[in-house]
Write a protein that binds this DNA or RNA. Sequence first.
DNA 1: TAAATACTTGACTGCTGTAGTCAGGAATTA
DNA 2: TAATTCCTGACTACAGCAGTCAAGTATTTA
Lengths: 168, 168
Amino acid sequence: MKLNTKGRYAVMAMADIAKCGLGGAPSKAVPMAQIAERQHISLPYLEQLFSKLRREGLVSSMRGPGGGYTLARPASQIYIGEIMQAVGEPVKMTRCNREKNESTGCIGGGDCNTHELWSALSDHIYNFLGSISLQDVIDKNVGSFGSLTSNLRAVNEKTGPEAIEEAI
Amino acid sequence: MKLNTKGRYAVMAMADIAKCGLGGAPSKAVPMAQIAERQHISLPYLEQLFSKLRREGLVSSMRGPGGGYTLARPASQIYIGEIMQAVGEPVKMTRCNREKNESTGCIGGGDCNTHELWSALSDHIYNFLGSISLQDVIDKNVGSFGSLTSNLRAVNEKTGPEAIEEAI
DNA sequence: TAAATACTTGACTGCTGTAGTCAGGAATTA
DNA sequence: TAATTCCTGACTACAGCAGTCAAGTATTTA
């Protein structure tokens, strides 16, 4: 269960633009070559990723000298989950492609005890990434979520899920 | 960001034991061949996994006719995170191996904007898996966590992530 | 003791998907 | 026109996963 470089690089690059593109009133375009150098990512590889980011409408591009990339929206309105999804970093914990209620989704049909676990895990990760914006990342404002769930765990260990509301 | 079969199969097998090992006062040993058949997992492959589960003290084995595996502890005291870790399914989102506070951990030293994000993601997943017991899984008692985080998602759903189904 | 059952271990292999390269092209500015 | 930058698709090496195979060891039943 590892993160691959596509998702990681894409977020790194987006954070780089968010950080270095500031200055002008219409925010300055950041050339890809600079991003590649600062983040130590191979330029041709980065080009692949930006092709996808552009198609998904997360960045805008300008060609020619002085050109480069800008964020298509303010950093506070771009969520990590979107970036991951755009470059094809799927959050996929279940093996079957069916809907939750179809028990036939799993191999052999009907005897998959663990489907709901993996499904819940996917949701959990998805929600986490969908709740953190690029702005949060460059502000290093990510810790709160981690500590929140730590509290939940402590509650759950003692008294069970009923006490969760207290924790919030 | 996918789950590989090691972790998935290990949890499936453990859940199978938890479910099928009941009956006798000292819970009945479940032969691996039965698990393999019920869960549609190749027997030799499963043997590899159980070797690790046994070494980590999560299951006990009994040889000879009538032998098999039993859980080393009650299902309510075995957490999914332990199983995943035992079979070598690491939850690793960061690339560098250093501690949180060492900024030199990341490549090039000091310019890794996203380290804390991945670190928080790892924590998040780890806490989730560490809070769900095998008993929760066989009782299908996993949903509460999912619905909790769904509330978080609702906050940014206005602007944000479409195509949830694709992500799952 | 012998046979049956079941666990144990290590080495081996095919293959998929990731990570990265390469080459050429198109738009824009000066 | 020349320089700069983005854009696109095809291609490839390689690691690691998933699974196999073979030979062994321990335990119980008869």
